[in-house]
Design a binder for these strands. Structure first.
Lengths: 255, 255
DNA sequence: AGTGATTGTATCGTATTGTGATACATAGCG
DNA sequence: CGCTATGTATCACAATACGATACAATCACT
């Protein structure tokens, strides 16, 4: 197994998440690698066009090459293509912003998004991953996962500031909310994603009883007020059922 | 310089552009690598979660991990953030789909896109790169490049079927069109991107006289008919000037 | 301006790691 | 059923990545 490739990936991953360009020594320190190794990796990536020096400095950052590759991958992605029309229709008919998310265990990743007419309450972007315990998108899936998976859930999300920590709520309340979600088949989050933004999500299945992800509807609390939760919730569940159907999936537990 | 990392990138790049999942031997053949090397690289990437086997087969394809990384990079990309509102406004006020492209020498890459109300004449997606000689997006930039850059331009784009090959037109006509583009400051393409789809593009600058890319307006030939070219062309030039301003650029040649 | 610490980059002997020919079992196909 | 092509495993060899060290440039203080 090629350790050098793993080092390359470590560097790329780190730079992808870094807010600012990083220097060699800085990198070496933060990802625990030998300075020489980092230097070699970075100069290789730089020659290949994946990394560049920020103009004026000697610090490095990723170019858009990685993004180019990634967009080709997602363009061809089956599930996304199949479900996009559903999002589009949902956004148009409700006026809200609609997301598609997929489960990537203890996270959900937003895979697609169609903005509604009700303004853009600047929320998540496709590609971002969030612990399943923190938003409606995740809770909708979490509620249907087998018990043993829930046990090992990391309770500590202190670095995800600005999110309501669902798992950190007392175990009693958690079980209770899971039960509620299972019954009405959608999850709700008030200000979970961002202050003043509400969202409702319902799970999607594929294969036999395999949780795939969720359909999420989001808007600020004025447009998506608690009074409308059950009305919109029903529509989200409907969209999620369509999505499950499109993927040829079978829901669990059966209705 | 780490050759192993380069091999890893070769595999990733190839898989990113491959339409179907690829087997080990297949890969080894097509990217001219030793089978053992490919096997080692692929299993490393697979362990790291960047590659997976298509269910039921033993062929490999990329997961969405690369895409996740890439989306973080583009989310933070300065120019894109700055210019997005311009695209949004353009799309809303004209009803056409508006693109932002950047120059990556002999190509332009679509960096952003906002769809207009006039239906989606399913064209390019952000992330795709196209030779500058083939579309309005490219020609708008090409026309202002220094002469020596134009000399070495690859004339053979036979693999880009469905595109009108601008560079393949007789040199006379080419020089003439470049002159026209320089004068009115926008480039036009009828059916260049796709049969029945027209587009108009104007160049953007940054720094001192550095060509950055272009603003492109696209629609099917019914909505964007040749009679409207000069009217819409003026608006595209206006948008591009705003964009140049937003980037703090200086146009060349001066108006 | 001067000093000291930190940084990016270059060097080099060593041994770890990737190499690639070979082998084998399995899957696919006529 | 037999053939070919494929994915995976093995192994001795040598190329390659390693990492301590060195040096010059830059930066941050005083």
């Amino acid at each position: 197994m090629s350790t050098t490739i793993l080092k390359g990936l470590r560097v790329i991953e780190f730079l992808a998440h870094a807010k600012e360009p990083k220097g060699i020594s800085e990198l070496a320190r933060e990802i625990e690698m030998n300075k020489s190794a980092v230097q070699r990796v970075v100069s290789t990536l730089s020659n290949a066009g994946y990394v560049e020096q920020a103009p004026g400095t000697s610090k490095y950052r990723l170019t858009l090459s990685i993004w180019e590759l990634g967009s080709h991958v997602v363009d061809r992605h089956q599930a996304r293509r199949l479900l996009h029309p559903i999002l589009r229709f949902g956004a148009q008919s409700t006026g809200f912003t609609v997301f598609l998310s997929y489960l990537s265990f203890p996270f959900v990743v937003y895979l697609d998004k169609v903005e509604g007419a009700h303004g853009r309450s600047h929320t998540a972007e496709p590609g971002s991953r969030i612990p399943i315990t923190l938003t409606a998108a995740g809770k909708a899936v979490l509620a249907f996962l087998p018990d043993e998976k829930l046990q090992g859930l990391d309770q500590d999300h202190s670095d995800w500031t600005g999110y309501v920590n669902f798992a950190a709520t007392p175990l009693e309340a958690l079980r209770e909310e899971i039960e509620t979600i299972r019954e009405r088949r959608y999850a709700v989050s008030e200000g979970g994603m961002k202050q003043g933004v509400n969202s409702i999500a319902a799970p999607i299945w594929w294969r036999e009883h395999q949780p795939y992800g969720s359909i999420v509807v989001t808007a600020d609390q004025v447009n998506l007020s608690p009074e409308r939760f059950s009305e919109i919730g029903a529509r989200v569940v409907g969209m999620a059922e369509e999505a499950t159907l499109a993927l040829g999936g079978v829901p669990f537990p059966p209705l």
